[in-house]
Design a protein around this nucleic acid. Sequence first.
DNA 1: CTAAGGATTAACT
DNA 2: GTTAATCCTTAGT
Length: 200
Amino acid sequence: MMKLPIAFYRQPDVVQISRILLGKHLFTNLNGVLTGGRIVETEAYAHQNDQACHSHLGRFTKRTRVMYEAGGVAYVYLIYGRYALFNIITNEAGKADAVLIRGLEPIEGIPEMLLRRGLTTVSPQLTAGPGLLTQALGITTTYYGTDLTGDLIWIEDRGEIIPEEQILASPRVGIDYAGVDAALPWRFRLKNSRWTSPAK
DNA sequence: CTAAGGATTAACT
DNA sequence: GTTAATCCTTAGT
């Protein structure tokens, strides 16, 4: 098991990074409890030519501030007043690209994840959805800007290679407001995984 | 199917 | 300064 190095996040092609993240393992170690799982669904957001991206056309606000940092930090934000969504900032400083994690296959610390979600049995309700996996992992907006090479939140490569034919590329979810960019096939997920979020 | 919830932002005064 | 619309969704009818 190898923690992804900072150089991984600094690569320029956010779409490519989104693909490669499938099959990697996302972990959190918060309050002394280790939880984590295998990434099965991601979406890419580019700062250029992508109206769906919070940082498109250089929009810089209090919320999007960390997006402009060099790759390798967490961008966590609240949506619909309730749910934290976890994004990974990529590219070099000033080039505000991000990858949204939408689905996770639970692997580590399942009892704690069930507790955090208020469930008693393991089902897709546990981590299949961007707002669900953050609950399961204990990620809240408190972790806005967290360094992903630290020991609170990180990603590991466990040597798994996902063959291209196992990856499904499709339009992203919930961004119809982005006009023509809503059609970009920048949502990636593993075929035959029960842990991808329900399509709209 | 729909209501909920609160931060964020753009558009006003 | 204030207001209103919006949102990378989920849980509950």
